[in-house]
Amino acid sequence: MLGFLVGEALRDLRRAGRVAVSAVVLITLSLAALGGFWLVSSNLGHAVAKWRDRVRIVVYLKREPPGGDVAALLERVRVMPGVAGVVFIGKADALRALKQVLGKDAGVVDQLPVNPLPASLEVTPSAAAVTPEGARELLARLAVLPEADDVAGSADWVERFSHWQRLLTTIGLGVGFVLAAASILTVTTATTLILHARRHETEIMRLVGASEWTIRLPVLLQGMMQGLAGAILALGALVVTHSVVAPRLEPLVSLTLGLSQLVFFTPVGVVALLGAGTLLGGLGGWLARAAREP
């Protein structure tokens, strides 16, 4: 029975011909747009998350506290709201880090008469504090520490970036939805043609006592097939684009965004994309049917 229903649906698709093809193309475009924006946005999202993790606020200290006082100072900072972690960096540690950065030019450092680098506290804000206001409040709290000389750091740029990411997602969703609406309408048009071409079959089916679902299912199935075909094509296009673009772009994004690789859809994402296509097509088929038989 299922074989029969699928066979009827395929026969219908052949009959709808060019309109069915354009419906599939539109579904491909809309899902490729939705999927493409989704990919770009989720990669940017990864970058934002990574950067959030990397936000540090540095409290430069007036002088290096004596060994016994460090633990107490760290404890006072750790209990502050918005602080996830804190590390003490002594003057000697700072100098060592500088030497490491300078590499073969490290000799310059040895020429210095005294260590000019201040001791500091490196504060990791908690997730809640990595907003512009959260970071500002934390900065203010740290600035009033009697030991503090200067406080540096901000989360504004992460926020700006995250704002762009959200904007891009919104545009992507908007474009995707417009295309999705267009593709539903095209499936509906294709299905209306199919219903017309199918009217003799439908008449005979009614006459011989076919169940209502046997009459309706081929029409719904052909819509879903259009959607699934579009989704598979869109997925293929995205796979190809990702495999061509990712290796070329990865050196650049690893430098600028700090992403070592560009992620593709998870298996769940792939299933969701295919499901969305099938749903779009099925909806188009169902709408045509509903419009005909109130």
């Binding site: 003799h200 079959e201 005979i204 089916m205 006459l207 006592g209």
Partner: peptide
């Protein structure tokens, strides 16, 4: 019930055999 009309109402893109078999397939 079987019904026939003045016009045969055969499905034009199917053979005679397929037209007859269609009823059986429709009804599972």
């Amino acid at each position: 019930i079987g019904v026939v009309f003045q016009d045969a109402k055969l499905l034009p893109v199917r053979t005679v055999y397929e037209n007859v078999a269609f009823v059986l397939r429709v009804l599972g």
